[in-house]
Amino acid sequence: MRLFKKLALVAALVLPMQAFAEDPMKVGFVYVGPVGDHGWSYQHDQGRLALEEHFGDKVQTTYVENVSEGADAERTIRKLAQAGNDIIFTTSFGFMNPTARVAKEYPDKTFLHATGYKRSENMGTYLSTTYEGRYVSGTAAGMVTKTNKLGFIASFPIPEVIRDINATFLAARKINPDVELKVVWVSTWFDPAKEADAANTLMDQGVDVIIQHTDSPAAMLAAEKRGIWAVGQASDMSRFGPEAHLLSVVDDWAPYYIQTVQQVMDGTWKSEDYWGGIHEGDIKIASISDRLTDEQRKKIDDTIEAIGNGSLHPFTGPLKDQSGKLRVPEGKDMTKEELAGMNWYVEGMTSTLPK
Rank of each mutant, 00 (worst) to 15 (best):
M1K: 14
R2H: 13
K5P: 00
M17S: 13
M17A: 15
D23H: 10
V27N: 06
G28N: 08
V30A: 06
Y31H: 15
G33W: 13
P34H: 10
V35G: 11
V35Q: 12
G36R: 10
Y42S: 09
Q46F: 09
A50P: 09
F55A: 06
Q60T: 11
Q60E: 14
Y63N: 06
N66V: 13
T76W: 02
R78N: 10
A83W: 04
I88R: 02
S92I: 00
F93L: 12
G94V: 03
A100N: 07
A103N: 04
A103S: 12
E105H: 00
F111M: 05
K118C: 00
S128M: 07
T129F: 00
T130G: 09
E132P: 02
E132I: 02
G133N: 01
Y135N: 03
V136G: 03
T139Y: 03
K149L: 12
G151T: 07
E160Y: 01
V161H: 02
V161Y: 05
D164Q: 14
A171P: 00
A171F: 01
A172L: 05
R173W: 01
K174Q: 14
N176S: 04
L181R: 01
K182I: 07
V183W: 04
V183T: 13
W185P: 11
F190G: 06
D191Q: 14
D191N: 15
D191S: 15
A193M: 13
E195I: 07
A199R: 11
N200F: 01
G206P: 10
Q212D: 08
L221Y: 04
R226P: 12
R226M: 11
G232S: 13
A234S: 15
D236S: 08
F240Y: 15
E243F: 05
L247R: 08
D251C: 01
D252A: 13
T260F: 03
Q262D: 11
Q263V: 02
K270Q: 14
Y274C: 00
H279A: 15
H279R: 13
G281W: 08
A286K: 13
I288A: 05
R291S: 09
E295C: 01
Q296K: 07
Q296A: 04
Q296H: 02
I304K: 04
E305P: 00
A306G: 04
N309S: 05
S311V: 11
H313F: 14
F315Y: 09
Q322W: 03
G324S: 09
G324N: 08
V328F: 06
V328W: 06
P329L: 07
E330V: 03
G331F: 12
K332D: 10
M334H: 10
E338G: 06
E338F: 05
E338N: 12
L339A: 03
Y345A: 14
E347K: 10
G348K: 04
